[in-house]
């Protein structure tokens, strides 16, 4: 291929088509939006009508009261992430989108587990919770509620450990994520 500014024509064979590609992995998108009414509806509606499936979604205030932070995860095996982010960028209230690099990101999720415990099992369940650095936030005669914080894998692992005891219910917040190092997400 010729250098910029030369007269050498570019051979067509050298061109690579870009975009519309499936990456095959989970993507965490961190989206900074204006804190205005209807923003979440616009984002959710965009995903719905374009046929993009949201895996998890969290919304909360940021350090600036005029801005909110949305963190959502999307399966890059099913959707062209490039198209998802371009469509999101078209929303006027969306200020910034980052497709977070998993290696450069700290992602956390909070989950609450209500586990059925009878007599001797209680100690066993509490021991498992301790190993996972979980907190017992409620204790009843026949159940405990455990709070676990961590990545999606850790929560899934804990779930598989306590399920045999009798998992009454589980709730998860969905992931929030922040980039490592000094730079803003």
């Amino acid at each position: 291929m010729g250098e910029p500014g030369t007269k050498e024509p570019l051979s067509l064979e050298e061109l690579q088509a870009a975009g519309s590609l499936r990456t095959g992995r989970k993507h965490t998108l961190s989206i900074l939006v204006e804190n205005k009414s209807g923003v979440l509806t616009r984002i959710a509606g965009l995903f719905a009508r374009r046929g993009f499936n949201i895996e998890t979604l969290t919304v909360g205030p940021s350090d600036d009261p005029d801005l909110s932070r949305i963190t959502l995860t999307v399966d890059g095996a099913l959707h062209p992430i490039d198209q998802v982010t371009k469509q999101l960028h078209k929303l006027i209230n969306v200020l910034k989108i980052r497709d977070l690099d998993p290696a450069e990101t700290v992602a956390r999720e909070l989950a609450l587990f209500k586990v059925s415990v009878d007599g001797p099992q209680r100690g066993e369940v509490m021991q498992i919770a301790e190993i996972f650095r979980g907190k017992i936030v409620d204790v009843g005669k026949r159940s405990v509620v455990i709070e676990i914080t961590g990545g999606a894998e850790k929560i899934a692992a804990f779930e598989s450990m306590v399920r045999p005891f009798g998992l009454i219910e589980m709730m998860r917040t969905g992931e929030i994520a922040i980039s490592r190092g000094r730079q803003e997400t």
Partner: peptide
């Protein structure tokens, strides 16, 4: 002018 149109239906070699 709309980046979302580029490579939406047909992948572009030079966007």
């Amino acid at each position: 002018i709309d980046p979302a149109e580029i490579s939406k239906n047909v992948p572009a070699h030079i966007p």
